[in-house]
Amino acid sequence: MELNILAFGIAKDIVGARKLRYRVAAHTRVGELLEQLQRQYPALQGLNSLKVAVNSEYVGHDYQLSESDEVVLIPPVSGG
């Protein structure tokens, strides 16, 4: 399936775009997506953390993704 991924902050710089269309296997979980992304973009491994939000909520590594999800890569936040 193809996911719509949004990347912010340093994650956007590393993947080279705000929006990605990204192919993964059906029933991929968040943890597997992160592993796949980290293999393709090794600089993601050097971050303090890399979280994922789906439809504006943080999700854990076990969350099973579907094609309709808006997936957002959240590197360490630094507001305030």
């Binding site: 912010f8 902050g9 340093i10 710089d13 050097g46 971050l47 303090n48 939000a53 943080y58 957002v72 959240i74 590197p75 360490p76 936040v77 630094s78 507001g79 305030g80």
Partner: peptide
């Protein structure tokens, strides 16, 4: 936890705060 990111821009470069 609020998804906001800040980049510090210096005379000789720039850094995403807390990224590394």
């Amino acid at each position: 936890r609020v998804p906001i990111w800040k980049k510090e821009v210096f005379e000789d470069g720039e850094v995403w705060v807390a990224a590394h």
